[in-house]
Design a protein around this nucleic acid. Structure first.
Length: 589
DNA sequence: CTAGTACCTG
DNA sequence: CAGGTACTAG
């Protein structure tokens, strides 16, 4: 958000309006971590406002300055036509581009736009300059963002959960009756009744069963949990309870089993490695991209250690962003390498957030979100692998054939190597899967111009080769292309519709532009698009609008300055995306 | 020369 | 979305 903040000044040069309401609430620095989640969420919630999508209307054709532009536009138009545009608009579009077909491609200019010699720095200079605070402040900021993000996703999940309950309620009025008694809740209580009633739903049932199941073993919590289900005012608390139990249990089990089996053997190697690399070694802890071939060989203990720094790194943090947790993690790492190290400090905290994040982001096995989405992101909560993406000791759960064969891209075999102590590691040096694509798309909501380093740090389950890397880069390039085309299209529409003030253009969740983008990057709509993306989109829209209105699009490279601006608006990607069980293949996509 | 990006095409 | 090309920065 600091980027957003910093950019406000820039956009003001174009229009004197405040762009980021959220910025006002933004604590400058020294932000306390203890801030209630609610408050943080409100901060973000404020930003969700905005007027309705522009309504198309007729307008006369625009006199274009040169044919080159027309050709370019033709491409945009072709996409426009593919969308649901009111009849009135189709004519309008025709005036824009149809008259000049692609066939008349600009002859003189050739394929490439002439390069702008100077990097348009002057025009947009003075922006950026983010992160001026102390490292500590930055960490706080990141933590805060993390909290906001998780909170948001939780709310999102709750909403969807309620939706499911509602529909389930309608469909299950009869069956629900007999089981109402299981829950001491009032008959009219939606929460209690739905929860049970939906037991017959293959989808929601799974959720609820898991919730109850978790409650079960935890002593008296059981009765308490059920009882509260009946009296609690909202689904929120029930869900919250369940998640907490689930997370706590899973975290404990996973951490325990992992550390028990692995730690004694690898601790020395890892520690040695950390020392060699120094505390600042991040991301590329392992012998760097090229040196990561020893896969074929039977992984010795040392190779395991070098290849799997992620194991302890759950708390170490692998990138600068993750650094917020690093200090604690490192401390624990060095101080308490004891077997059976009880979770409770930093590491579990991180894991909790990660696990929670996964719950929220990647709609689990049950069909909370849209069917399509949940299928893609199915996970097995009872399975430890969604806690430690790459690390998977047999102790937790034996590797089944399904794990080895299932959901694998043909060209990307899964390497299973057996280390000492019967610990098997699932080594996934696979190529990019549809799951990765989906993840990348979601990440696009936060970053439009990810560096390859960033990508590395977020696609931890991917063996980064030159090829893989450029494929990922290429993805984002494609994302951007689509994004900019869409935004430009709507900017032009707005102009033709007679919009005068760029500030009047805002991308809200119910705007057409948002729908188009969301459709592309978040098809199943199973992810709550962060408000920061709406801000970026709004600004992009305004920039395009202003540029076109000012006739700057006559310049072949008129988009460059806009790109530059937008490229500075990348947000921090929630850590959640690192731990996500995104490598889980999607059977259907 | 390599990476990264944009642009165009299928 | 992948391929291919052109161009640039380092």
């Amino acid at each position: 958000m600091s980027q957003l903040l910093s950019h406000t000044a820039v956009s003001r040069s174009l229009d004197p309006c405040t762009h980021f309401p959220s910025s006002a609430v933004e604590p400058p620095q020294g932000y306390e971590l203890g801030v209630p989640l609610r408050e943080a969420a409100q901060t973000l919630a404020i930003t969700r406002t905005c007027g309705p999508a522009p309504v198309p209307c007729a307008a006369d054709g625009e006199q274009l300055s040169n044919e080159y532009l027309q050709a370019k536009r033709a491409r945009v138009e072709s996409i426009i036509q593919g969308m649901s545009i009111p009849p009135a608009h189709q004519g309008l579009e025709g005036g824009l581009g149809q008259g000049r077909e692609r066939g008349r491609e600009v002859p003189h200019r050739g394929k490439r736009k002439p390069r702008v010699p100077q990097q348009q720095g002057a025009g947009v200079a003075g922006q950026g300059a983010p992160a001026t605070g102390s490292p500590h402040t930055a960490e706080c900021q990141q933590l805060r963002e993390q909290l906001c993000f998780l909170e948001q996703q939780l709310r999102w999940l709750q909403e969807r959960f309620s939706q499911v309950c509602d529909s389930g309620d309608a469909a299950q009025t009869q069956e629900g009756a007999e089981e109402v008694q299981l829950l001491p809740g009032k008959a009219g209580d939606r929460v209690g009744r739905d929860g049970v009633a939906t037991t017959h739903h293959p989808h929601t049932a799974t959720l609820w069963e898991s919730i109850l199941e978790v409650d079960g073993p935890t002593t008296g919590e059981n009765e308490e949990g059920r009882g509260s289900a009946g009296i609690l005012p909202s689904v929120a608390r029930v869900l919250s309870q369940a998640l907490k139990h689930e997370l706590a249990g899973m975290t404990s089990r996973v951490v325990d089993s992992v550390l028990k089996t692995v730690w004694p053997k690898t601790a020395s190697h890892l520690l040695q490695q950390r020392l060699e690399l120094g505390p600042d070694a991040r991301g590329e802890c392992f012998p760097a991209g090229k040196g990561r071939k020893p896969l074929a060989k039977a992984p010795s203990l040392s190779t395991l250690g070098s290849r799997r720094p992620e194991a302890p790194s759950l708390s170490l943090g692998k990138s600068s962003q993750a650094r917020s947790f690093s200090p604690e993690g490192v401390r624990n790492f060095r101080q308490a390498p004891s077997v059976g190290h009880r979770p409770g400090s930093a590491a579990p905290a991180v894991q909790d957030s990660q696990l929670l994040g996964q719950l929220l982001v990647y709609t689990p096995h049950n069909h909370w979100g849209s069917p399509a989405a949940s299928e893609n992101w199915r996970m097995e909560p009872a399975d430890a692998r969604w806690a430690v993406t790459k690390l998977r000791p047999l102790a937790v759960r034996p590797l089944g054939p399904d794990m080895v064969e299932g959901n694998r891209t043909p060209l990307t075999p899964t390497h299973v190597s057996f280390g000492v102590d019967g610990v098997a590691w699932l080594l996934r040096d696979e190529a990019l899967t549809p799951g990765h694509l989906k993840k990348a798309k979601l990440m696009f909501f936060f970053t439009r111009y990810p560096s390859s380093a960033l990508l590395r740090s977020y696609f931890l389950d991917v063996q980064f080769s030159r090829c893989i890397n450029s494929q990922l880069i290429k993805w984002f390039s494609n994302f951007r292309e689509f994004y900019y085309i869409q935004v430009e299209k709507f900017a032009r529409q707005a102009l033709l519709e007679g919009v005068v003030e760029a500030t009047a253009l805002r991308v809200s969740r119910d705007s057409e532009l948002f729908r188009a983008l969301n459709m592309h990057y978040n098809k199943g709509n199973d992810f709550q698009v962060p408000s920061c993306f709406l801000e970026v989109a709004s600004l992009t829209l305004q920039e395009f609008f202003s540029a076109v209105r000012a006739g700057r699009d006559a310049d072949p490279s008129w988009k460059k300055p806009i790109y530059k601006i937008i490229s500075k608006l990348d947000s921090h990607i929630p850590e959640v995306f690192k731990a996500a069980g995104c490598s889980e293949e999607l059977p259907h996509n």
